[in-house]
Design a protein around this nucleic acid. Structure first.
Ligand SMILES: [Zn+2]
Ligand SMILES: [Zn+2]
Ligand SMILES: [Zn+2]
Ligand SMILES: [Zn+2]
Lengths: 132, 132
DNA sequence: TTATAAATGTTATATTATTACATAACGTTA
DNA sequence: TAACGTTATGTAATAATATAACATTTATAA
């Protein structure tokens, strides 16, 4: 069961935009798109993004400096994220694979470190781009 | 067997610096440290970094925008990287675990995508920081 | 040698993200 | 409701990260 978070005004505007776009969006592209709604400064965007990441509504694609809406409806996994990224068309999708997430969540090595969080990014060619 | 790459002058200066530091270094900190060796501009640093990443001598820690020397002596894994990152002291080390790398290299899902590369970053508290 | 690719040097600029400070709105509980 | 602490907002300035464009030089190899 996911905790309900009441998004603030700016958070809602920015989440809706990212969610509707369906693809990773960059901070300044978000800024450009929400200026007509009164959000004028980078910091307003970054603050909303920080919060949305924190509560798991969006994730940051680190290799792309971009943000995508969480695609796992029942997302306990804001701390356990995996993505596939097409290096040709830049399509990104969130991997939802319980075996993978179990394997990684339970992973431990001999370093004595307890892992509480991970982010995995796979790269390759998507079906469409492969067949070109 | 890893291919020998003859590093160019700038590549060697920058690799040696990163390698000796033993920890992730940021591009502009690298720049500052090599200015006395005649490397004056960001682009000179970024070009060397790009090449060193390409040939697997260093890796980029995406979540930190920093670069660390490869810690796997026999590194075929420039396209299959895993790191553990302490969120308290920011210590980073490269995970060398053949089960993990096999599991991830062979991973496939029903998306029809063939993954040729991955990067995994684990977060948590290292032994030292845990016991504080 | 001659051509090709790889690397370098330099200036300017683009992109991504944070600091600092002031104010306003919200949620809790006395 | 009043007071308090927390969260969110507004705004300006600036820091940090990364690339574009162009000229030149050096290495590799046919
Ligand atoms: Zn998610
Ligand atoms: Zn594609
Ligand atoms: Zn390595
Ligand atoms: Zn630590």
């Amino acid at each position: 069961m996911q905790k309900e978070h009441n998004l603030s005004k700016n958070q809602k505007i920015i989440f809706d935009l990212i969610d509707k776009s369906g693809e990773p969006m960059k901070a300044y592209s978000i800024l450009f798109n929400v200026q007509k709604k009164g959000i004028k400064a980078p910091l307003q965007v970054y603050r909303a993004l920080d919060k949305l990441v924190e509560i798991g509504k969006i994730h940051k694609i680190e290799s792309r400096n971009a943000f995508i809406a969480c695609q796992n409806s029942s997302c306990q996994v804001s701390k356990a994220t995996a993505f596939s990224i097409c290096e040709s068309c830049e399509n990104v999708s969130e991997i939802s694979n319980s075996k993978l997430s179990k394997y990684l969540s339970n992973f431990s090595d001999d370093s004595g470190m307890k892992y509480s969080k991970y982010n995995l990014e796979f790269f390759g060619l998507c079906k469409r781009c492969k067949s070109k």
